[in-house]
C-alpha cells in the first residue's frame, strides 16, 4: 500500500467513523421504531467499516485502529465537513444519507479495482453491506421526493458532498468537529495512564 492509498483509506475511515457517530444520534428518536432499528444498524455498520479500514492502515503504520480513531487531534482528521454536521432534522439527515451513499458507491467501486488485493477485498466486503444502505437511502429518496423540505435539504447539502470524492478539497472542518471529537474520545481519554487491556 503506497502513501497515497494510506491517505485515501484514512479519509474514508474518518468519514465512516464520524458519520456513524452522527447517525447513531438518532437511535431511540428516529421517526418510527422500524426506522430506528434500520438506521441504528446502518450507523453501526459505518463504524464497523471505519474499524476495518483503520486496521488496514494501522498495520502499515505500525499502530492500532483505536489509536488512529481516537488519539489524533481534531485537525488531524481527514473527514469531510458534511459528515460532521449535527443534523437534527430528519429530512436533512436523509438528504445527507442519500448524498453520502451516492458518493460512497463511487469511491468503493474505485477501491474494488485497486491493485492491492487487501484493499480490493475489503472494499468488496464493505460494498456488500453498503448495498443495504443504498436500498434504504433510495427508499427514503423515493418517498420524500417532491417534499419541499427534503428538496431544500438536498440543495443545501449537495455542494458539500463533492468533498467526499476529492482529497484536494479536504482539510477544512466545521466548528462542530471539536465538540464531537470531545464526546467521541472521552472514554478513551479518561483511562488512567498506563492502563492496559
Amino acid at each position: 500500500m503506497n502513501e497515497l492509498e494510506q491517505k485515501l483509506i484514512l479519509e474514508i475511515a474518518d468519514d465512516e467513523l464520524v458519520l456513524g457517530w452522527r447517525d447513531s444520534e438518532w437511535t431511540g428518536i428516529a421517526p418510527m421504531l422500524e426506522e430506528d432499528v434500520a438506521f441504528s444498524s446502518i450507523a453501526q455498520n459505518e463504524i464497523g467499516h471505519a474499524r476495518a479500514l483503520y486496521e488496514l492502515v494501522a498495520r502499515e503504520l505500525g499502530t492500532t485502529a483505536d489509536e488512529l480513531a481516537f488519539d489524533r487531534s481534531p485537525d488531524e482528521y481527514r473527514c469531510a465537513p458534511i459528515v460532521e454536521l449535527r443534523l437534527l432534522d430528519w429530512a436533512q439527515t436523509i438528504a445527507r444519507h442519500y448524498l453520502y451513499e451516492e458518493a460512497d458507491a463511487i469511491r468503493l467501486e474505485r477501491l474494488k479495482r485497486s491493485d492491492d488485493p487487501e484493499i480490493a477485498g475489503l472494499a468488496a466486503k464493505i460494498d456488500r453491506e453498503e448495498a443495504y444502505h443504498r436500498i434504504h437511502a433510495q427508499m427514503w429518496f423515493d418517498r420524500l421526493q417532491g417534499e419541499p423540505r427534503f428538496a431544500a435539504a438536498l440543495a443545501e447539502l449537495r455542494p458539500q458532498a463533492a468533498v467526499l470524492l476529492d482529497s484536494e478539497l479536504r482539510g477544512a472542518h466545521t466548528p462542530e468537529l471539536p465538540e464531537l471529537w470531545n464526546e467521541m474520545t472521552m472514554v478513551r481519554r479518561s483511562q488512567p495512564a498506563g492502563t492496559k487491556w
Binding site: 418510527m32 421504531l33 422500524e34 426506522e35 432499528v37 434500520a38 444498524s41 443495504y132 436500498i135 434504504h136 427508499m139 423515493d142 418517498r143
Partner: peptide, 20 residues
C-alpha cells in the same frame, strides 16, 4: 409485524429485522 408506509418500506424493514 412491521409498520411501514408502503411495500418498499415493508420490504426494507422486513429484511433488516428478520433477514439480514
Amino acid at each position: 409485524s412491521v409498520e411501514a408506509a408502503n411495500d418498499h418500506f415493508a420490504d426494507v424493514y422486513a429484511r433488516e429485522q428478520y433477514g439480514r
